Simulated scan of single mutants.
Amino acid sequence: MDALVGTLLLCSAVGVYVVCSLFLLHNPCLLHKRKKLKFHCRHISHRGGCGEKIESTMEAFTNAVDVCTEMLEMDCHLTLDGCVVVSHDNNLLRQSGCDKTISSLRFQDLPLYKEQLEVTFNVGHYSTGKDREFVLLEDVFKKFPNMPILLEIKENNDLLIKKVSCLVNQYGRESITVWGSEGSEVMAKCQKQNPSIPYLFTVRRTILLLLLFCTGLLPFVPLGESVLLFYLPQIINRTYIPEESYLKNRFVVYLLQKVAMRKSLLDHLTKRGLQVQLFVCNEESDIEAAFAVGATGVLTDYPTLLSNYLRKHPLPPPPAFY
């Protein structure tokens, strides 16, 4: 008899938990205050649109802005003489053919980019351009003062973090700059240095987010992050060949697709005021898939392609709370 009562109580408790979890999944603002970001970016140019111009050059950024991008994505490193440089890699071999690091060179001694550079997320395709010079982050801020920027801190370097924060403050960009890092230690330093800048999920926090969603706990947990940046799984091992061995495993990619690409998850985050940006979509079918699953924005190496897609397939206006 006691066992039966215990079982009934347990089933009742589980039932109440499931009902509450599902209800709050669809109505998260009953428990959490909605984030109110100062931007809503559907069109994000990855490395400045590196499929059309040499990545992370001023020419690439200018081209992306000219074709109506809404956000520029870039990465940064620190030179030997303390300059914050926009570059994906620290080692310059892939980008310039010079096997040296940015951190070992003065800004004036940085080599030029190669004349043709393979597009990382579109294997076998190359970009070129007239501009092959590395650019200072400050110069990007100066030229595009009102353009939202997604910025990844690529090094665990306290001085780099401090200088990026100072530049963001100097140019009054706290509300239109998002920064982040894959590593939790770097991200913690960024938050401590400047808590007013919106920030990304780290890899660890993204894994936790997915676990919370799968167990039904997500609706009950507060989130400090403002933007979720995530692979569109269907591009992996098709247009993008990852270096990480685990991402070359078809079963892992299948799990990413099944667990992360859930419209209910992305809609929940959107209702909480977060933005979900999927990358890197270089074909119309991938752009379509990203928006269909609930992404608020798409990163692309081909800003003209994305602009043309959005003209042909206009999306509803963003919610009024943005």
Score class of each variant (00 low, 15 high):
P28G: 14
S87E: 02
A260E: 02
F230W: 03
R238E: 09
Y322L: 12
M71D: 08
N308A: 07
Q277C: 12
T215D: 04
D89S: 13
N122C: 15
G48L: 07
P111L: 04
L211R: 13
K163T: 03
I153T: 10
A60V: 04
L223W: 05
V14F: 12
D89Y: 12
F279H: 05
A3P: 06
L223I: 13
E182F: 15
S96A: 07
G297T: 09
N63F: 12
L269G: 00
Q191L: 11
M261N: 01
V85W: 02
E225D: 05
N27F: 15
S264N: 14
L209C: 11
T79N: 06
S103G: 01
L105W: 00
T270Q: 06
E138K: 08
V252F: 05
P222V: 02
V135Y: 04
G82E: 06
N90M: 03
N90A: 11
S245A: 11
P317N: 06
A295D: 02
K192L: 08
V168Q: 00
V203A: 15
E225R: 04
E225A: 14
V135L: 15
K192I: 02
V5H: 14
V19M: 04
V85E: 03
T69K: 05
S196F: 07
T215H: 07
S181T: 06
V186E: 05
P303T: 11
K162L: 00
R94G: 03
